[in-house]
Amino acid sequence: MAVVRRIARPLLASAFVSSGLRTVQHPEALAATAAPVALAIAQWVPGLPRDARALVRLNGAVHLGAGTLLAFGILPRACALALAASLVPTTLAGHAYWAEEDPGKRMQHRVAFFSNMSILGGLLIAVADRPRRGRRRRGCGRGGMCP
């Protein structure tokens, strides 16, 4: 299972690292789309900026930082939780397919919405993952004494 984790974590993190880097560099590209959701969240969370561009950049920084740490296996459960928490508003702001009038755009946003939900599922599995600290054969008991 350790080999699977070494492969899976960077794969799961790759989308966050690439989009986070792009978002940190160019937050204005997403600020207008994200504003309704981002500003609503900022009203409920003390200390967050009240500027959509700054909130988008902050979200990109979380994706970039937590994604990079997850890829290297550093605090993987905490990083997966941070990414999961930030993915929900990102998805609601960017892929509200139910509000889209154009059938083609609605389908694109619907696919992206459910792709993000699939990634969210993977992140939640990573949050719940508890790697074994030692190897014990089944039936060996607590002391590890095996015949």
Rank of each mutant, 00 (worst) to 15 (best):
G94V: 00
S115R: 14
L39Q: 06
A61I: 09
I74A: 08
L120V: 00
V111C: 02
E101I: 07
R110I: 02
L21H: 10
V88N: 01
P46L: 07
R50T: 03
P131W: 01
A85C: 13
P46Q: 09
I119W: 07
A96Q: 11
V127R: 07
A31H: 03
D51G: 09
A52P: 02
F72C: 12
S19H: 08
R22D: 12
P10W: 03
A29H: 07
L55Y: 05
Y97R: 04
A61V: 11
G73A: 03
R135N: 12
A35G: 04
G94N: 12
A34E: 03
L92A: 13
D129H: 12
N116Y: 00
A82M: 11
L64Y: 00
N59R: 12
L92K: 03
D51H: 05
V4F: 15
S19V: 02
I74V: 15
V56K: 02
A32N: 08
D102W: 05
G121H: 08
V56P: 04
K105W: 13
P27F: 02
L83S: 03
P103G: 06
S86T: 13
R133I: 07
D129Y: 14
C146N: 06
R130I: 14
L123P: 07
L120N: 06
M1F: 14
P131E: 13
V4N: 12
D129S: 12
E28Y: 01
V37P: 13
P49E: 09
L58K: 04
S19A: 11
T90H: 09
C79V: 08
L12A: 14
N116C: 10
T33M: 12
T33L: 14
H109W: 13
L21P: 00
A85D: 00
A8D: 04
D102M: 09
I7F: 13
A85V: 15
R50K: 14
L70G: 08
V17Y: 00
G67R: 04
R57N: 01
P76K: 01
V3G: 08
I41Y: 01
G122A: 06
G73W: 01
L55K: 03
H26N: 15
T91L: 14
L55D: 05
A78C: 07
G60P: 06
G104H: 09
G94P: 02
R133G: 15
V3S: 13
A54F: 05
R138P: 05
F113T: 07
R137I: 12
A85Y: 00
G73V: 09
A32R: 11
S115I: 13
L81G: 10
S115N: 13
V24W: 03
T33Y: 00
A8L: 13
E100L: 10
L75N: 08
V37W: 07
H26K: 11
T68F: 06
A42T: 05
R77F: 04
V45Q: 11
T91N: 14
G60H: 04
L21D: 06
R136N: 13
I119K: 06
L70M: 09
V45M: 11
C140L: 03
A78Y: 02
A31E: 06
I41C: 00
V56Q: 05
A38Y: 10
G144M: 10
S115F: 05
L12E: 02
P46E: 08
R9F: 09
